[in-house]
């Protein structure tokens, strides 16, 4: 089962003593603020966790993988997340079965 805002709120409420309502509001607010910053073109560096950087991609030719038809991939801005050392180290030795994406 994937972790969602609900699980994050529950953890927050247990760990910080926020009410369920406060925890939910905080989680919504937190991710909305991150989104707003990225929307404004601000990169976010969270030490211990990772960096949300932005990359501007040029227009490029692409193909529809199903039909093989040529299609233009428009110029776009994408988020590139690079995990920090601490998170990388915690994750790299994960040995279990990979969850299906």
């Amino acid at each position: 089962m994937a972790v969602t805002k609900r699980e994050i709120s529950e953890r927050l409420s247990e760990a910080v003593g926020f009410s369920k309502r406060e925890a939910k509001d905080f989680v919504d607010f937190f991710f909305e603020q991150l989104s707003q910053l990225l929307e404004k073109g601000e990169v976010i560096h969270l030490s211990g966790f990772g960096n949300f950087d932005l990359r501007d991609k040029r227009e490029r030719p692409g193909r529809n993988p199903r039909t093989g038809a040529f299609a233009k991939v428009s110029a776009r801005r994408v988020v590139s997340f690079k995990a920090g050392h601490k998170l990388k180290n915690r994750v790299k030795s994960y040995a279990g079965r990979k969850e299906k994406n």
Binding site: M1, A2, V3, E7, I8, R11, L12, G48, F49, K86, L87, R90, V91, Y94, G96, R97, K98, E99
Partner: peptide, 10 residues
């Protein structure tokens, strides 16, 4: 919590 979840492969 996000880090912990990822470390568990979630």
């Amino acid at each position: 919590y996000l880090s912990e979840s990822l470390a568990l492969g979630q």
